[in-house]
Design a protein around this nucleic acid. Structure first.
Lengths: 349, 349
DNA sequence: GTTAGCACTCGGTAAAATCGAGTGCTAACA
DNA sequence: TGTTAGCACTCGATTTTACCGAGTGCTAAC
């Protein structure tokens, strides 16, 4: 649990101090209890020196302005997306529990292995840390240059094109030729491909030989296969941690089904996260992200950058009624560590 | 939906014809309705020319022998794991709906791309076809030989070892050296690694140079990194399709949570599937597979083989109360297609 | 061995009763 | 004018009660 830092009402927006305090109290309690919040408990908890009756008057106003809603007459109030938004916007940065900080430090001190593995493990860390479902996105390597290409022949017509990029990613592509090629020709094609592609990005056009011999045909084939992947934006990696948590944090089988369905479509998840990143936001609440099936969800994202450029993001997914402060702190901390992890990698041995 | 082939009672086991028919009727109806099944509906549906009272007497016997259970007095009967087992053992092979057959044919006629992609897509196909969660396992490449190795240097101390195996898999491993190496040395190391490793399996011991120069040290480092992966049995691939279906086919949030939790641990899933395969079985019901958290699940598996050797499997996961005949037919069909897909691959262009 | 008849069980569902948190309003108050 | 105590009222949630009926086990007759 993150300790909640006392938030002195700071009316950046159109709410006066008291309304803000009341709204905050409603949000906090509702996040805690999942129940509609009544005027008396607000009057009691928030240290306003006013009676429930006064709070009620204010709540009517807050409801009229769209920050709160009433599930039905004679029930307490529940925050709307707008209410959560206000709350989040006026939230002070949370501080992680020492135990959590330690766990993160520990983790990054010991992770080893390929980028992919690190990202995957990170998603597990994050979900374990928060008990929510986590999403870790790696933004692919459109800017990376080719370090090495190699054509390996499996049999006479079936070859494998293995490409290594400057960011450490490796791709493989089958190259099925309509003609046979012997070992020498494949080796030669491999050599030419290296000469041709090393240092280029996948976006760059390269001059392929137009000759009709086997080697040239192989080279052309390989280049076209390699460049064909571009539009699909392959290289986008998604790692989802703790999808089982969905069943815990969401209520209602229907919601669980929907959310799981979304998580399955990894492309959707990537674009969701990237949309949010593009907006420069760190939290998308309910309808804000425009995905109807996720309208009861909130998503927290934190970018991971390298050399000032965003190369990925970590995220957390939960019901709108989630522990924003704690989770934002966790996401932020992990993304920071990830950033330095990758940033510092080159310097180390 | 698979058409249910009429199963004439064939008492392979200790049940007489009538008991078998009754058991079958109970199982079929319970699978269909999820409700306890009473004597009268059995007497009615199964074309036994006997009265409910007689059926009741038999049901008491079946219960005593452990094939049926009663949720509570004065409720109908429900099959036990043993009951399902009997049912499945005496099930005739189902026939897929033409529409499903077509969909499978269609799919395999059009899939393209790397083995990994095909397996992943297959898992989606299976889950879409059946509306259950599917599991596709590829058994790694312990028997595959090295076709090519290449050491690529990212910077002075940080290299990437890219290995291509005869089964078309490609692995990459970071090699962090404690010393610097220049381009020429890396290239030479690469050449030596090729000479050393091509044609070997990862299980084979190789003679590494014991000299102390940079190249030799690089070679030793690379070989050890490569062989270090062995114990983890990397290369095992798991693709899970339709995990969202879990929320549909299982009832009870708690069960859903448990099952999702299991599915997250891919290693567990692999060993589950391989256990079942080892036993030479195609269905594991309830407690049969020994995983307590999956005690309310049944798993159907069908092996995928190449050159007579099992190289993977497809599976389906659902509640014990699942449509065995249809799902077994689907799993079988897909595994067959997958087998021929990979088997025939070498022959095509 | 089979079956009709019958008393009995007991979970599920629906109707009724009750509870109480919370509201909105009003009138008095500082 | 803003605040508050008082109060009648609402309405979902919970509990209680009643009841139904599917299904059983048993027994006696066929």
């Amino acid at each position: 649990m993150a300790r909640r830092v006392k938030t002195p009402s700071q009316p950046k927006s159109n709410l006066d101090a008291r309304k803000a305090t009341i709204l905050e109290a409603v949000v906090v309690e509702h996040i805690d209890t999942a129940q509609p919040v009544g005027s008396s408990s607000v009057a009691h908890n928030a240290d306003l020196a006013v009676s429930p009756a006064t709070v009620r008057t204010e709540m009517v106003a807050l409801e009229r302005e769209g920050y709160l809603a009433q599930p039905h007459t004679s029930a307490g109030r529940v925050p709307t997306d707008k209410g959560y938004r206000y709350f989040v916007d006026h939230l002070e940065a949370g501080v992680l529990e020492p135990a959590q900080q330690r766990q993160i430090k520990e983790f990054f001190a010991h992770v080893r292995g390929e980028v992919e593995d690190v990202l995957e493990q990170t998603s597990l860390l994050l979900s374990q840390l928060t008990s929510y479902t986590s999403v870790v996105v790696g933004s692919g390597h459109s800017r990376a240059t080719v370090l090495s290409v190699q054509l390996v022949n499996l049999d006479a017509r079936h070859h494998l094109l293995v490409t290594v990029f400057s960011d450490g990613t490796v791709t493989k592509h089958s190259v099925l030729a309509s003609f046979e090629a012997n070992h020498v020709e494949v080796t030669e094609a491999s050599r030419q491909l290296n000469a041709l592609l090393i240092g280029t990005t996948l976006e760059a056009k390269v001059q392929v030989p137009s000759r009709g011999d086997t080697v040239a045909k192989l080279v052309r084939e390989a280049v076209s296969v390699l460049h064909a992947e571009m539009p699909t934006m392959e290289g986008e990696q998604v790692y989802i941690g703790g999808s089982a948590k969905v069943a815990d944090v969401f209520e209602g089988v229907e919601t669980v089904r929907k959310v799981l369905g979304i998580l399955e479509q990894e492309l959707l998840v990537v674009s969701l996260v990237e949309d949010i990143l593009d907006k420069g936001v760190t939290v998308a609440i309910g309808s804000e992200h425009g995905f109807e099936p996720l309208s009861s969800c909130a998503v927290i994202v934190a970018p991971v950058s390298l050399d000032g450029e965003t190369i990925g993001a970590v995220g957390l997914l939960g019901p709108t009624r989630m522990k924003y402060q704690e989770l934002m702190a966790a996401a932020e901390a992990v993304s920071k560590h990830l950033t330095t992890h990758f940033g510092g990698e080159n310097d180390r041995g």
